[in-house]
Design a protein around this nucleic acid. Structure first.
Lengths: 141, 141
DNA sequence: TTGAAAATATTGAATATTCAAGAATTGAAG
DNA sequence: CTTCAATTCTTGAATATTCAATATTTTCAA
């Protein structure tokens, strides 16, 4: 017989991702915000304008999904669109003041989670895991 | 400023998972099968009957999604349902002969991928990463 | 300079997922 | 034994995601 599915890297990643994501979702739900929106706010919180393509890459969403999520966030006045003056094909996304306030709250919820992981999983394993994940991602490009 | 999103464990996991999953998807698409169906076949390939609840846990899908995916797989005669004689609330899923044949092909495609990762990423980092992921998952329960 | 190809974002239809409710069966307390 | 709560799975409606097509702008070669 072949190796069981629980030994495949793809499966272990999916499982770990699912679990950690579930925990984070649970915390962010206190503010009624999906994980993807937190990512968007966090990327935009540098105050710069980011094009949709750039954003889609950064927040791990494909274009149409991002467009529709941004539509919602614009309705909620968390972010706003500006046409890029240098390339009018592009739309630059900016975070609003309301978005910044929300983002701060979300950050602290996310930090709570990271601290919880550090406690139960350990300091060294966590940083070692992060290092390995980064290098796996690098080696996949 | 807060830590950038790229330093959060949740983000790194999502990114790595997305990338590895994308690669696996690409291989399995040669047989026109989504990753989740491969997982289902693999779990069932022990020949035992598995209840829907058990399966849903194992393949990281929630109940209704699994039910509908199983409906498709039953249509394709890859698996079949049998009512559990000991507990008639339960449905036991079995893999068919056709399912077994397909599963073998998929396994070798998946093994290809694992080997590709081992080559580009290295033998030791891979097993170390797997170990850390397993223990993260453990510590989250 | 013009026109074709590439890049960027959005839209709408098709598909898939999720949530909440329902049906069937079992378990267990009174 | 009966009844009520819990377990298991499925269904249908609401929601979200994806694919393919479209519109707009830019790039670049002829």
């Amino acid at each position: 017989m072949n190796a069981p599915i629980t030994e495949h890297l793809a499966y272990l990643l999916a499982q770990a991702n699912r679990e950690i994501n579930r925990q984070l979702e649970l915390r962010l739900s206190k503010e009624g915000v999906p994980v993807e929106q937190w990512r968007i706010l966090k990327v935009l919180s540098d105050g710069d304008g980011h094009s949709m393509g750039e954003l889609a890459d950064a927040v791990l969403l494909n274009h149409p999904t991002l467009t529709k999520m941004i539509d919602r966030m614009v309705s909620d006045t968390l972010v706003y669109r500006v046409q890029d003056p240098n390339d009018r094909r592009k739309v630059l996304m900016f975070i609003s003041d309301r978005g910044k306030v929300l983002c701060k709250k979300l950050n602290s919820l996310a930090v709570d989670q990271e601290e919880h992981i550090l406690e139960s999983y350990g300091d060294k394993p966590t940083s070692e895991l992060k290092r390995l994940l980064e290098s796996l991602i690098d080696s996949s490009n």
